[in-house]
């Protein structure tokens, strides 16, 4: 085994160990819970842990399959996310062609450009071509009511669920000297930092959370959860430096940026949900809500992470 395979192996055995411990804790908590308790915190916790096993398994399979597996996996996640997002928009019958183009042309093309490694195209395709061409398709049907709202909603849906999500597999296209063939570990680093930041915020918030940070957006988020979660996720990121091209402190700094973007991204997505009067984007993943609920923090951190790494490390 070369160092890449060793690192991948270490990573997944570490994750399995953490999940086994989490599952055991969840099992014991469920056993100790009085039968007449109507709190569903523990039930929700166990549903989350179970979903974690499935998610890690899926990501693991995609990693084993390599670059193409990862691209297809995130392409599917974009599709599922777009499906959830579009259901909340004001789009009308007159937007039918626009939506068809978003799902069946823009989304596949974006991932195709990543597949063929065409940075000059995938980095501007949606903000330039899709943003300008889709309103033209919309205007041809002649429906002017709520035009700006409808156009903006579809553009944002594409931005959030396709453009930003596609930055995760795009990490595979970065050329970093001395790190050739190991870029999948960059994805692992990103996803791990984001998700551990989410989990640690949840844990810190449940343990010592008192002061609500944004009561109107997300009643469960607290200042203590935010500070504890972001700081401990930064530490987790720094401790993962061995699988990245970064040094210990660099990895920590990047993890800090990722966690902050993830946190505020989560707030932005909450604001959209509040506005539309829903609690979750869907209920496809038990205990976690919809696909976007699990992706929201990755969505905001992936493009920034990509461009920082590209600027400072890539040739």
């Amino acid at each position: 085994m070369d160092s890449y395979q060793t690192n991948l192996f270490t990573l997944f055995s570490g994750l399995a160990a953490v999940l086994i411990i989490a599952s055991l804790i969840g099992f014991v908590l469920a056993r100790r819970q009085p039968a007449d308790s109507d709190s569903n915190v523990i039930e929700n916790l166990n549903a989350r842990i179970k979903a974690w096993w499935v998610m890690i398994a899926v990501i693991g399979l995609a990693f084993v399959w390599g670059r193409h597996g990862v691209i297809l996996l995130f392409g599917y996640l974009s599709f599922a996310g777009l499906r959830e997002f579009i259901a909340l928009t004001n789009t009308k019958r007159a937007d039918h062609l626009v939506l068809a183009a978003a799902f069946y042309i823009v989304l596949p093309l974006q991932y195709f450009f990543i597949w063929i490694d065409w940075y000059g195209m995938f980095s501007i395709f949606i903000p330039v071509y899709a943003y300008l061409l889709l309103p033209i398709v919309a205007v041809l049907r002649g429906e002017v009511k709520n035009f700006l709202i409808r156009v903006a909603e579809v553009q944002w849906a594409l931005m959030i669920t396709v453009y930003c999500v596609s930055y995760v597999p795009a990490l595979l296209s970065l050329d970093i000297v001395g790190y050739e063939g190991q870029n999948i570990l960059l994805i692992a680093f990103l996803v791990l930092v984001v998700q551990s930041s989410d989990v640690l915020q949840y844990v810190w918030g449940k343990l010592v959370g008192k002061v609500k940070i944004a009561p109107r957006l997300s009643p469960s988020k607290t200042v203590e959860g935010f500070a504890g979660g972001v700081l401990s996720a930064t530490l987790v990121g720094a401790c993962l430096w061995w699988m990245t091209p970064f040094g210990f402190f660099q990895a920590g700094l990047l993890a800090l940026v990722i966690s902050l973007m993830g946190f505020f991204g989560g707030l932005v997505m909450s604001a959209i949900k509040r506005d539309r009067g829903i609690k979750d984007w869907g209920n496809t993943i038990a205990g976690h809500g919809g696909f976007i609920d699990r992706l929201d923090s990755v969505i905001f951190s992936a493009p920034i992470f990509f461009h920082i790494v590209r600027f400072y490390w890539s040739v």
Binding site: R83, E84, I86, A87, H96, L99, F103, G282
Partner: peptide, 17 residues
């Protein structure tokens, strides 16, 4: 939501939750 997937007269179904 199903009426938004395939409104009358359209042939391409759009994914809607």
């Amino acid at each position: 939501n199903l009426n938004r997937v395939l409104p009358k007269g359209e042939i391409i179904p759009i994914p809607f939750a």
